[in-house]
């Protein structure tokens, strides 16, 4: 295991950034597994800097009005709606 192998604290921090709740067992398990995976990712250090040729062309179209999903369809999968809007949790 390398020196900067990930700590349980870091796993909790990343989970918070990603808005994923974790149980204590998951934190333990992920801390062990992430150490292995991140150690393996370290080998990317050996990759030389490579010139990247972007072989891309922009795809443009005129900005024309067109039909979209109607409101009822768009709301159909929402667990909660109110007055034709999505209803989310309280911000704070």
């Amino acid at each position: 295991m390398s020196d900067d192998a990930v700590s349980a604290e870091e796993v909790r921090h990343v989970a918070e950034l990603a808005r994923v709740g974790l149980t204590d067992e998951e934190v333990d398990q992920f801390t062990r597994q992430f150490a292995d995976v991140l150690e393996y990712f370290e080998t990317l250090d050996e990759v030389p800097e490579v010139e990247r040729e972007a072989d891309l062309t922009n795809v443009m179209r005129p900005d024309e009005e067109r039909d979209s999903l109607d409101r009822e369809e768009a709301l159909r999968n929402a667990p909660e709606t109110e007055d034709g809007y999505f209803k989310g949790p309280n911000v704070s």
Binding site: V11, A18, G21, F30, P89
Partner: peptide, 23 residues
């Protein structure tokens, strides 16, 4: 609320990849 929905809705492998990607 989001963290709980995602804790319940996603399985282990999906959580692993989201977290490692975020990292």
């Amino acid at each position: 609320t989001f963290a709980q929905a995602r804790e319940e809705g996603f399985g282990d492998e999906v959580k692993r990849r989201i977290l490692l990607g975020t990292y």
